[in-house]
Simulated scan of single mutants.
Amino acid sequence: MALLRACLLGLATASMLLLAACVNKEPQERAAFIQLLQSRMNSASLVPLAGLSEPEKEAVGGYADAYEVITDFQQAMAKAAAPMRDVLAVETLRSVGEIVERRARFEAARKTLAENAARLQDARARADQARAALALPPDLAPVYDGVYDEAVSAPAADLMEAASKLDAVARDALGVADFVAAHAGDILLADGQARVATPTLQQELNLRLQGLNAQSDGLERARAAVSQAAGPARDAP
C-alpha cells in the first residue's frame, strides 16, 4: 500500500507539472505588451524607440519579436540617415566661392543621398513585410499600428522627403557652380563673392542664387528630420 500511495503521489505531481507547463501565458503577455506600447506612445518621441529591458522582454514574451520589427527598422534608418548628416554640412553655404569650391562634394553628396535613400526604402519594405506577417489579436493590432505609424511609417516618409530636398539643394548648387565655370572670363571671385562683368550675367546668376536661397526653409526641415532619424551625433575619435 505504501508503494501504491508513493506511485499515486508521483503521478499526481507529474500531472501538476504537466499542467503548469501547458498554462497559456499569451493573455498576460498580450496585456503587458499593450500596456508597454501605450506607455511608449505617451513618451515625447518614438524616434528612437526605447529598447526592451530584460523584465519587459520577459513580460511580453513572444510579442518581443513584433517589437523588434520596429526597432530593427529604426536601427537601419539611423544608418541611412548618418551619411545624410554629412551632406547637411556640405550644403551649409555662405558664398558663391564656397559653392564653386565644393562642386565635387555636391556630386558626391547626390550619390550618397541616392544610395542611402535606397537603403531606407529597402528597410521600410522589410519592416512592412514583417508587419504584414504578424497575426496580432484584434485588441492589440490598433495599438501596435499606432506605434508603427509613428515609429516607422512617418519618420521613413520624413527622411525620404529630406533626402529629396537635400538632393535638390545639391543639384541647384551644382547649377550655380557650372554657371560660374561656364563664364569664368566674366565672373571674378574675390573673397568668395562674385563680381560679374555684365548686368545680364549678373541677373542670370542672381536667378540661380535666388532659387538656391528659396530652399532654405526646406533645408531646415530636412535638417530636423535627418537629426531625429540619425540620433545624437557621435564625437570624432
Rank of each mutant, 00 (worst) to 15 (best):
T13P: 03
Y63K: 03
E107I: 05
N116S: 00
K165G: 15
L205N: 08
L188K: 15
E56L: 00
P237K: 05
S227A: 07
R223W: 01
A89I: 00
E26D: 06
V96A: 02
Q210P: 00
A233L: 06
L9R: 13
L46R: 04
S43Y: 10
L134G: 12
L134M: 09
L113Y: 05
L49A: 01
A125H: 06
P137F: 03
Q202T: 04
A32N: 09
G10P: 10
E29Q: 10
R30H: 09
R102I: 04
S153Y: 01
Q129D: 12
S95P: 14
P199W: 14
E26C: 01
L219K: 01
A162M: 08
E68L: 08
A125F: 11
G10T: 07
A156Q: 12
E29K: 10
D128W: 03
L17E: 07
K79Q: 09
A59Y: 00
A127V: 10
Q75A: 15
Q121S: 09
N213W: 13
A81R: 02
L219W: 14
V152F: 02
M41G: 00
N116F: 01
A108F: 02
A130D: 13
S43A: 09
R30T: 02
E91W: 00
A114D: 06
S164M: 05
F106L: 04
Y63C: 10
A133F: 09
A132T: 03
R110T: 12
A182G: 10
V152A: 01
I70L: 04
Y144W: 13
T71R: 11
G231H: 04
G97N: 07
L52W: 12
L120P: 04
F33M: 01
E68C: 07
P55A: 10
V147P: 05
Q202H: 12
R208D: 08
A78E: 06
G10L: 10
F179K: 01
Q210S: 08
D186S: 14
A109M: 05
A31G: 12
L19M: 02
L205Y: 03
R85E: 11
D191T: 13
D145S: 11
R102G: 13
Q75T: 08
A59T: 01
D86P: 00
S43M: 14
L188E: 06
A20L: 09
Q75W: 06
I99W: 07
D178G: 15
E101K: 13
A229H: 02
R105K: 13
A117L: 13
C22S: 13
V143I: 04
R234M: 00
Q210I: 09
L174I: 13
R171S: 00
D122W: 13
G97V: 11
Q35A: 15
I34W: 00
T71L: 11
V147Q: 11
P138L: 04
Q129M: 15
M160N: 02
A170M: 02
G211R: 09
Q215V: 03
E115P: 07
A20T: 05
A114E: 08
S39W: 12
A133Q: 15
R171W: 11
R85M: 13
S216K: 08
A82H: 02
E29H: 13
S45G: 05
E115F: 10
